[in-house]
Simulated assay, not measured.
Amino acid sequence: MNDFDDASRAPSDASAQVRTECAGEDPWLPLVRDAWTEVLEHGNFDDEANFFEVGGHSLRATLMLRSLRRRTGIAVGVRTVFDNPTIRGLASALAEKAGAGNVISKSTPN
């Protein structure tokens, strides 16, 4: 089993914790948007677009989750993207996995 399939293997060391108190917008949304833009190599989508309908596929989903894991310390399996193929859905799934509402752990990318 690789680390993309094992959602329980999140990095144990996060370099900083950032509490975002942003009225009106889920603090996970910008992180997911940035990861989508990075792996899709475009920004032609909104928060309700389906990842797989705007150029995504399973390899890009894996790369996106890897990027999100580095940025947040939260690891989820690729199945999460298939079950939550929108930015809003994936942000919600990450927040639920974090179990801390608006607390986002950021680690320095290597």
Rank of each mutant, 00 (worst) to 15 (best):
A14R: 10
A14I: 12
A14Y: 14
S15T: 14
A16I: 13
V18F: 14
R19S: 13
R19Q: 10
E21P: 15
E21K: 11
C22H: 15
C22S: 15
C22A: 15
A23R: 13
A23I: 09
E25A: 07
L29Q: 03
P30M: 09
P30A: 03
D34T: 05
A35D: 04
A35M: 09
A35C: 07
W36T: 00
W36P: 03
V39I: 07
L40I: 04
E41S: 12
H42D: 06
H42Q: 08
G43H: 11
N44T: 13
N44S: 11
F45G: 02
D47T: 01
A49E: 08
F51V: 01
F52V: 02
F52C: 03
V54P: 06
G55R: 02
H57Y: 12
L59Q: 08
R60I: 06
R60D: 05
L63R: 13
L65V: 01
L65W: 01
R66E: 10
S67R: 15
L68V: 02
R70M: 13
T72I: 07
T72N: 06
G73S: 05
G73F: 10
A75W: 05
A75P: 04
V76Q: 04
G77C: 08
G77V: 03
V78R: 09
V78C: 09
D83R: 09
N84L: 05
N84G: 06
P85E: 00
T86R: 02
I87E: 00
R88N: 10
R88V: 08
G89K: 01
L90V: 01
A91D: 03
S92V: 03
S92P: 13
S92G: 14
A95E: 10
A95R: 10
E96N: 10
E96A: 07
E96I: 08
K97V: 04
A98R: 12
A98S: 13
A100C: 14
